[in-house]
Design a protein around this nucleic acid. Structure first.
Lengths: 392, 392
DNA sequence: GATGTCTTGAGTAACGTTTCCTAAAGGGCG
DNA sequence: CGCCCTTTAGGAAACGTTACTCAAGACATC
């Protein structure tokens, strides 16, 4: 809110500078001057370059001897340009090296920009989704731009607002934590697809994984191996909306339902920490501190990053995986596939999610009035060496 | 090149549609209609929302009963607005929920957008740099937007050009592989900082790590432990410019020099594969295939991702780290810090690199004429359990 | 042969903001 | 008290592109 006001001071300084007619800029920083060494290691300085004016659509029109309108039509592949016209204009574009200015285009039409918000770049699952998105957009005029990692509501709001301000044509929000009202606000302002969050809205389209089914597969796998005391590490959540919509809640529910379905309700044990390595570590410490009769023989971590923490805690306790404890994760990240780790996990088909998100987004950009849609994908269990029969 | 021409067809369709006056859009997709189920799992549809006009600076001016110019001045903290004026305008901005349109601003002044290009989102080192960048920009009006992962020259060119087209105020390019000419082109068009690539240019500023020093620290560490047969896994490179400028080349050189300095030149052994997990895996297979007398007792992988491949190959060969082979990486990623892995690595202080990049960028945005600068940071060795004395 | 319709091209007014310029107040100084 | 300078406010012209509107010619229809 307040940051909106405090514009960068460069502009103010320049204007004041002109008004007071102080020393011209070129005298303040003479070229080839070496400044005192204020960097940790060292500095080298070189002469500055010169910049030149950008080619515009007017230049192209003049060079091709046609009207500006015609150039614009060719640029947009719009109706009403004869083949000869197209040829002439394209030659002029190539000869001048013209590239349309996205900001100016956005003022009237589209910016040909798709904004993607990822909650955490460090989680190796999200690049999969991103790959699906970029691959689907590769042959279009659209360009993908990412928001920087956002951990909280405030950061998310800043990033989404910034994308709206920049006139993006469509947004893909991956696992957003913002309240529904904010998502609706965004979806109303611009075509939006929310990925990895359950719950639907008329304002945006949704792509999710069937998290309940994924959790059920993990429990079935572990129960099939003979485990009974199967614990689950969940992300702690109190907000009622997020409790309904966030994937972790669905995984925990799927775990509970599947445990009952396998007649293991008495062994249901959910530790709520957080979907981080630290959360997995702490959750496991709690589980290992239980009396032997209650201690789980298998842990289903809600995410692979959580499983990393589990493995760390297990190693620290002098135990080994899977002999002393079977461990399963969720997301099938490269970490899970890493040989020495070999973590049983659930593959969410991130690429497929990204592809679907783009498809829905382009559909909605083409027809903003169409009813909103939810696509649900099925996950697949990937068994690896971190799960085996229980010791007893 | 050709993709520049083939605009998305939506505009063309709409224009043709109007010209031919076919059925209006609302009849093509009647609301509440359920389409056939063509998604992998299932679909739900809901009614669409309505969108409303964006608040503009004109609305603010009218509401505050002042001129548009005055509002603009307040927005930019520019000279010539009295305190009362500022107060009036800010109240109007808050009451209306006005946010300036970045694209329109970019047409005359700045877009308040900084573009960051990361070569590979999956490499856990780059988020560190990004954190440094975003942290430094948190209290400014600037917003960071990332290009999606680019693996090659072509992708890089597409992303950088897209950022130029969008009128970004500054660019941070992390470890770009583009030829120098392209970097100069970009740097001439917009303030630019290149991170993690040696070699300087008058057109842009540079922030690098002292890779030679980092490699020397690794060799010194291993030699100090008693190792003599220390091998290095490098990224294969033939392009002469990149051979001079890319960090991997500097690390390899640092390795060679340090080996000589420790009187170990006869054991210099550089395997050139690639800076990927696969590259580390293949390189290690080659090294392990050597006759016992030549086989290294320690491997210095040029990056932590490479070390991941090394560990995988070692485990697959039935050997163990560090008893049979000491392994060191580079970048000090979270993977290296992960307890069960505990990889000796070199910390590049990514946050510090990001911070310096932003500082240089803002300096240059404020004064485009200032001479270009290079900042070099010193890396730190982080010894962990993956390196120990050699067996013999 | 007159009247539409379709096609192609061009002129012009937006879009939302900043920058340049000018005008009107205030205030110190001779 | 008149003059100049400083401060404050506003009008108008950019910025680069697209959407709307219109005109002229080709061609088919009655």
């Amino acid at each position: 809110m307040t940051s909106r006001r405090c514009a960068h001071t460069a502009g103010a300084l320049r204007e004041r500078h002109l008004a007071r007619s102080g020393p011209p800029p070129e005298l303040r920083n003479p070229p080839y001057t070496r400044l005192p060494n204020d960097s940790p290691k060292g500095k080298d300085r070189m002469e500055p370059p010169a910049t030149r004016r950008r080619i515009t659509i007017v230049d192209v029109a003049r060079h091709a001897q046609v009207s500006v309108t015609s150039v614009s039509k060719v640029l947009r592949n719009a109706y009403g340009a004869s083949p000869e016209m197209q040829e002439k204009v394209r030659r002029a574009i190539d000869e001048l090296g013209f590239r349309p200015h996205a900001g100016a285009r956005g003022l009237r039409g589209q910016t040909y920009t798709i904004g993607v918000m990822l909650p955490d770049i460090r989680n190796p699952f999200f690049p999969e989704i991103l790959d699906g998105i970029t691959a689907s957009l590769k042959d279009t005029e659209y360009q993908v731009l990412l928001g920087p990692g956002c951990n909280g509501e405030k950061e998310e709001a800043r990033v989404t607002e910034a994308m709206l301000d920049r006139g993006m044509d469509g947004l893909v929000l991956v696992a957003p934590v913002s309240p529904r009202a904010h998502l609706d606000h965004v979806g109303t302002a611009v075509p939006t697809v929310v990925v990895g969050r359950h719950g639907t809205s008329p304002a945006y389209d949704t792509v999710t994984d069937d998290d309940m089914a994924g959790a059920a597969q993990v429990v079935a796998h572990l129960a099939g191996l003979g485990h009974r005391r199967i614990a689950h590490i969940d992300h702690h959540e109190t907000d009622p909306t997020r409790l309904m919509e966030m994937p972790n809640a669905h995984r925990a529910n799927g775990y509970r339902l599947a445990m009952r379905a396998h007649g293991l309700e008495e062994w249901i044990n959910v530790v709520a920490t957080s979907y981080t390595q630290q959360g997995g570590y702490e959750g496991t410490r709690q589980l290992l501190a239980l009396p032997a009769a209650d201690r789980p023989t298998a842990v289903f971590a809600g995410a692979d990053v959580v499983a990393m923490g589990v493995l760390e805690a297990v190693a620290e306790a002098g135990l080994s995986v899977p002999d002393d404890l079977s461990v399963a994760g969720y997301d099938n990240t490269t970490f899970a596939a890493f040989g020495p780790v070999s973590l049983t996990s659930v593959d969410q088909a991130g690429r497929e999610m990204g592809r679907n998100a783009v498809r829905l987004l382009l559909e909605r950009i083409a027809d903003r009035g169409r009813p909103s849609t939810k696509v649900t994908l099925s996950p697949t269990l990937v068994p690896r060496r971190s799960t085996t029969r229980p010791a007893e």
